[in-house]
């Protein structure tokens, strides 16, 4: 994937999140404060616009720009978390101008670690990590099995989707949802749902199917 593919990923993510903002907000209203879609739409639209103006000439620069934009514009818990994820992913790409399967895999892992360190959550706590964690693993398994970018990102998106479903029976232990304790059981985690969208956007772009 080259710089323009990374730009396309961000653009497709913003598009999907904007389209699904109400659904994300609805999920957050059930077990949080009902603003996740609003937050991410604001953040990703800002990131997309900022990227249009920015001279980010490498994939790493693209992701770091996005990370900074998300941090600056999103607010809430998800802003710093996704912002850090994109920044760490971007950093891990250093100056590369073309990103191959392996490199993309380690940048996804960097994203996961960034979120994990900042938010101190663990898989099973009913957060975005419960979508991203399985996605990273599935990506790496696929890549090791010889999958190309198309296959590996598809595997990641599908695993994220399964991870999202698995958040339903979980009891939230981090973020605002944790105040609800038992009452979170039976609901999808909104952050896991937005992670699915971002990874779906990645698979779409990798497959060359983005509009």
């Amino acid at each position: 994937m080259d710089t323009s593919a990374f730009r396309a990923w961000v653009h497709e993510s913003a598009r999907l999140i904007t389209a699904e903002a109400e659904e994300l907000t609805r999920l957050d209203a059930a077990i949080g404060d009902g603003d996740h879609g609003i937050n991410l739409r604001r953040g990703f639209q800002a990131a997309d616009e900022m990227l249009d103006k920015a001279e980010a000439e490498t994939p790493g620069a693209v992701l770091q720009t996005v990370g900074r934009a998300l941090i600056s514009k999103t607010g809430g818990a998800s802003g710093p978390l996704y912002g850090t994820a994109f920044r760490q992913a971007g950093k891990s790409l250093a100056d590369a101008t073309e990103v191959d399967v392996a490199r993309l895999g380690s940048s996804l892992e960097a994203a996961f670690n960034g979120i994990q360190q900042l938010g101190a959550a663990h898989e099973g706590d009913k957060t975005m990590l419960d979508a991203l964690g399985p996605a990273v693993t599935a990506y790496q398994v696929a890549a090791e099995g010889g999958a190309d970018l198309v296959g590996a990102t598809r595997a990641a998106a599908e695993a994220a989707e399964r991870g999202l479903q698995e958040t339903v029976p979980m009891l939230a232990r981090k973020g605002r949802a944790s105040y609800l304790g038992e009452r979170t059981i039976g609901h999808q985690d909104p952050g896991a749902a937005s992670t699915v969208l971002i990874l779906r956007a990645l698979a779409t772009v990798a497959a060359g199917e983005a509009t």
Binding site: D33, D35, N39, R42, I71, S72, G75, G76, G79, P80
Partner: peptide, 11 residues
């Protein structure tokens, strides 16, 4: 002040 019920941003 952040947006309604949303924390402010670092900037």
């Amino acid at each position: 002040p952040g947006e309604v019920f949303t924390s402010p941003v670092p900037d």
